[in-house]
Design a binder for these strands. Structure first.
Lengths: 173, 173
DNA sequence: TTAAAAATATAATGATCGTTCTATTTATCA
DNA sequence: TGATAAATAGAACGATCATTATATTTTTAA
């Protein structure tokens, strides 16, 4: 991935996350990324294509973070809760970018929509892989999503504390 | 509220919820509501003003639903969970419209942003009023928000079942 | 029936949208 | 150095955006 292309993805992710996809024009992205508009169309077929690349890179970063915590802990539920807390703390509190992308492209046949659904199914599969049954996996993800939302209106550290506490008492080890 | 004005609010709410605020133009709203564009500007100062009215009416409906359940139950936590489940089941699964509006207008000084923050604070206050301490109120709202998000990718009935189960075991009676 | 109010159709504003085209410049590397 | 590739600036496309102006019609009530 060339430096210019990566600059585009990084600035697009930040702007999309802070303001939404429809709210941000390509001109704003290329300007802040110090890239020509034609360079963007040289690297991506369309705005939708850029959105998908943003989601793909964000997904990779999220699962890498989960894996790094799970691999160095013997309490997998708590490890996931701690990783998610770290994820929340590391960015502005503006909700889950994947769900927000899905909400903006609510047509279930749209590539962005199907990508997000697959991402959340991958998250459930990730949890199940750590020896949680279907019900516990659902409950754990519900707690993660709840923390993401609540952190939009309540101090993220307080939310993280409650999340880890609830995960410990709710999810069977 | 005149019939035309109410038609505008109803169609705006549906379109905003399904596609997002920035994604929907006023022309689309007035066309589907069978109202002239100038009639919309006769009733509302701007698109932002229309959005605020949509949120206000939606908030009234939500709290009315919560109250009706709480007033006819002696288990207030479960009553709130059941009311929220009914709320989720009664519409498309596209997340929390309040948080989504806040995410689209992420400037903390924007009227839409401050309205949503006040709404979530009102929700926390509503829960506390039912004899829950600060910590339990936060936990209950975290579960509600988690259910709203999870229902976007998992069958809403299954989510509602887990929500009520988790509330029962998590929130002190 | 008549006066006031509400709603209408249409067009224009200036701005921005995603996308495409052309032509020129810069960077890479043999 | 010279050839190839990457990035650039700038304009144009048709479309849509929120908003305002004008003028006409419809509805409501006295």
């Amino acid at each position: 991935m060339s430096k210019k292309k990566q600059d585009l993805v990084d600035h697009a992710e930040s702007l999309f996350y802070n303001h939404g996809i429809h709210a941000i024009g390509l001109k704003r992205i290329v300007t802040e990324a110090n890239v020509a508009l034609m360079t963007m169309y040289n690297h991506f077929e369309s705005k939708e294509d850029l959105v998908l690349e943003v989601l793909k890179q964000r997904e990779d970063r999220y699962f890498d973070l989960l894996r790094s915590h799970v691999n160095t802990s013997d309490n997998q539920a708590l490890a996931i809760a701690r990783a998610h807390s770290e994820w929340l703390r590391s960015s502005r509190q503006n909700g889950c970018m994947f769900l927000r992308a899905k909400e903006e492209y609510s047509d279930p046949t749209h590539p962005i929509n199907t990508y997000v659904v697959a991402h959340k199914e991958a998250l459930l599969a990730f949890v199940k892989k750590e020896n949680f049954n279907h019900e516990d996996a659902m409950r754990l993800v519900l707690l993660l999503e709840g923390a993401t939302s609540l952190a939009e209106v309540v101090d993220v550290d307080e939310v993280a504390t409650q999340l880890q506490s609830m995960v410990t008492t709710t999810i069977g080890e």
